[in-house]
Amino acid sequence: MNTRRIPFPTLLRVETRKLFDTRGSKIISGVLVALAVGAVVGRGVVSGPELHTVAGTAGIVFGILLPVLAILTVTGEWSHRTALTTFTLEPRRGRVMAAKCLPPLVASVAACAFAMLVAVPVTAAVAAAQGVPADWRVAPLSLAGWTATTVLLTAQGLALGTVLMNAPAAIVICLSSTVIWSVVGRLGSAGETAMEWLDLNTATIPLVNGDMTGGDAARLAVSALAWIVLPMAAGMVRTMRREVG
């Protein structure tokens, strides 16, 4: 009999499987792929055969849907009360949470690579169809920054979902933050400063543009601390202490 503790790769396989083994999660994954492909094709047709622009359009889809997927992953055990069985099979809750957080982060990198892969034939096809030369130029720094931004937004979803333990609340905060910050940013210089330092979407713009300065890095670090590190730390403490019923 195997009485050693569950190996982490096993937990990782189980939690990855949970991403795709229900109707809801299959639908959201399907929608994610369909919208990403649709965004790439649509932008290619309208804007012309520019690889970088075409691929980057999928980022709009990823920036909204991957955090939602991340939130559903970390809140699922509470919303469906399956924590009762999951944490009974593995009482070390921190290991389960770690196994839940990794797949969405890896999926974010994979999604960006997927968008690039789809964008190449789309760019070639659009160039052929429109009879114009394709623009294959890609700024590696900007591409890496774009991928990193997608990962950071997913991490924000994980952190908010973990601390709130409630999917609707975390999704509303995630999706409405753009609106709220655009209002705050118009509230004089104090509001503008707050947005620069605390809005993750604003702070990641230099990352996507590939022209990050030292000041930009500091602003990014502060907003990541506020929206990823602190809520995740608080969320882990809550998860460890929560009475499961």
Binding site: I6, V14, R17, D21, S25, G76, T82, L84, T85, T88
Partner: peptide, 27 residues
């Protein structure tokens, strides 16, 4: 082995899948 609340299941997951996840965790 514990059964603490039979209703505490994800409604969209099949019964077989629930057992498969458990079997995976137990190797």
């Amino acid at each position: 082995g514990t059964l603490l609340d039979a209703s505490a299941q994800h409604p969209g997951r099949s019964g077989r899948e629930v057992l498969t996840l458990g079997a995976m965790m137990l190797g």
